[in-house]
């Protein structure tokens, strides 16, 4: 199932990536009788894509460290009283759309990458945190108790029982986080970050369909490819842990 899903995402990504090439997007637009003006060159598209990936990857790294770390802390016995508060903060964070986070961070952090990074961490951390908590809580109590019974310390139970068993769930949460990060990085174009959202915004402003289409296809392609990569990693992990 997950192999099929990863393949589907990869295929969608490849098709959309092809559609974002200057020649293909230009002829697509021309086929509908619209003027095919000033496409974004392949070099520029690759540059924008690289910068998009680096912003999203930076965001994912912070999300992974903070989200998974806090998730592990929140599932320790002493933190039970805070669980409700975490859920409430998560609900609040989701009520603030990423555009608004980017916009609010703009006066504080200035134009470009930093407000975008802040926005994608602020928006993505809660799903990762919630997913991590859910995955660790989903570990059967029997497994935990068996670990304790053979004399493992709390830390060893965490490292050798809880985390390996919760890994698929945590990876799934990180996949959601990465897809959110790619989407939010595209919004960052509005704050002046150089991402694949940039040609979309420029195309909308200049009423030029070619860069608009190229940016839209390339952004969607990147999102699908990231999704496929995370699904593939999850599949490999599942195969590796299954005896």
């Amino acid at each position: 199932m997950s192999v099929g899903k990863a393949g589907g995402s990869a295929l969608a990504g490849a098709v959309l990536a092809a559609a974002s090439l200057p020649g293909v997007a230009g002829s697509l637009v021309a086929a509908f009788g619209q003027p095919a003006l000033r496409p974004v060159s392949l070099d520029r598209l690759v540059d924008l894509g690289a910068s998009h990936v680096s912003i999203a990857a930076g965001g994912l790294a912070v999300m992974a460290i903070l989200g998974v770390g806090l998730g592990v802390l929140a599932t320790r016995a002493g933190a039970l009283a805070w669980r409700g508060e975490i859920d409430r903060v998560a609900a609040f964070a989701q009520a603030v759309p990423p555009v608004v986070v980017v916009a609010l961070a703009l006066p504080v952090l200035g134009f470009g990458g930093p407000p975008t990074l802040l926005a994608l961490v602020a928006y993505g951390i809660m799903p990762v945190l919630r997913g991590t908590i859910g995955a660790i809580e989903g570990v059967p109590t029997d497994a935990r108790e068996a670990g304790r019974a053979i004399g493992l310390s709390d830390l060893q139970v965490l490292r050798q029982v809880e985390l390996p068993l919760a890994a698929p769930g945590i990876l799934d949460a990180l996949r959601t986080g990465l897809v959110l990060a790619v989407a939010t990085a595209a919004v960052g174009a509005l704050a002046g970050a150089a991402t694949l959202g940039t040609p979309i915004v420029a195309g909308l402003q200049n009423q030029n369909l070619v860069p608009l289409l190229q940016g839209a296809c390339a952004t969607a392609a990147l999102a699908f490819l990231c999704d496929a990569a995370m699904l593939a990693v999850a599949g490999l992990l599942r195969r590796a842990t299954r005896p």
Binding site: A186, V187, G197, I200, V201, L213, G215, A216, A220, A223
Partner: peptide
């Protein structure tokens, strides 16, 4: 859900 909103709106 995977498609970023900015891209979908543009498309």
């Amino acid at each position: 859900q995977v498609v970023p909103a900015v891209a979908l709106f543009g498309a």
